[in-house]
Amino acid sequence: MSDTPNPSVNAQVRRLSVQERLSELEAEQARLRRELVTLAGELRLPGMYLTIDAASTSALLAADSVQEVVRLVELEPLQGAPPHIAGTFIYRGSPAVVVDLAALLGVRRVPDLDAHLVICKGARTVAVLVDRVRDLVEAPVLVDGTPDGTTPLPWDATGLMAGLCRTPEGVRPLLRTSAVLVGSEGS
């Protein structure tokens, strides 16, 4: 019997550690953004953001975390997977796990034929199932509070939201990509 650690176990432990650290950094970044808004009044986020619809709400996802957007394809169910894991499919020769964003928000529905898969960049192929992909927004303004000042959004309680942004179409939650990627682990 060898005392040599299993390389696949080490890789999995390291990946989980990196994902945890990324999640902590995103949470700190969101806290610092909120603090900046209260200090500066208006903060434009650099870069491009994809506007997506899920669970009757529009949200923003950093475009630099997106590899590609494809139409919904037939998914192979995963036995024993949590409800937010919609299944798997083969993306460019590799298996991809599909995380249903609406299910993460507690909304059960059957996606229609216009649904999309947002393929996220990362070591593993993870696709986010959304009802619709709208457009790109450049440098949205980070705002403090909720859109109407009082009612929390369903995104708030999920850990998916990094903040709120004002866009030409209105105030939208900013999605934390790491929270979706951690959701793909089946937690």
Rank of each mutant, 00 (worst) to 15 (best):
P173A: 07
M161T: 11
G163S: 08
T167A: 05
L164Q: 15
C165N: 12
L164R: 13
V171S: 14
L153V: 05
P152F: 04
L160C: 02
L153M: 13
D156F: 01
A162H: 02
W155A: 09
G149D: 04
M161V: 10
W155V: 09
T150V: 15
T167Q: 05
T150Y: 12
M161S: 13
M161I: 07
A157F: 00
R176I: 03
G149W: 04
P152N: 03
P152H: 04
W155H: 14
A162Y: 01
L164S: 15
R176C: 10
P168W: 09
R176G: 03
R166Y: 11
P168V: 08
W155K: 03
L175W: 02
L164W: 07
P168D: 12
P147I: 07
L153T: 15
P152Y: 03
P154M: 07
P152L: 03
R166G: 11
L160H: 01
L160V: 01
T177S: 11
R172K: 15
L174M: 13
G163Y: 04
V171F: 12
L153A: 13
T158P: 01
D148S: 07
W155D: 05
G149Q: 04
M161L: 13
D148G: 07
C165R: 11
G170M: 11
R166F: 11
T150S: 15
L164D: 10
L160R: 00
A162C: 02
R176L: 12
T150W: 10
P173L: 04
A157E: 04
E169M: 13
R176M: 14
R172T: 09
M161R: 15
M161P: 00
R172W: 06
L174Y: 04
G159P: 01
W155Y: 11
T167V: 03
T151Q: 12
A162W: 02
E169P: 08
V171Y: 12
L174N: 06
T158N: 00
L164E: 14
L175S: 07
L175D: 05
A162S: 14
D156H: 11
P168Y: 09
L153Q: 12
W155Q: 08
T150G: 09
G163H: 06
D156T: 13
T177Y: 01
A157P: 00
R166L: 15
P173M: 05
D156L: 05
L153K: 02
A157L: 02
T150I: 14
G149S: 03
P147S: 09
R176T: 04
R166S: 15
W155I: 06
A157D: 04
G149I: 03
P154C: 09
C165M: 14
L174F: 08
T167Y: 06
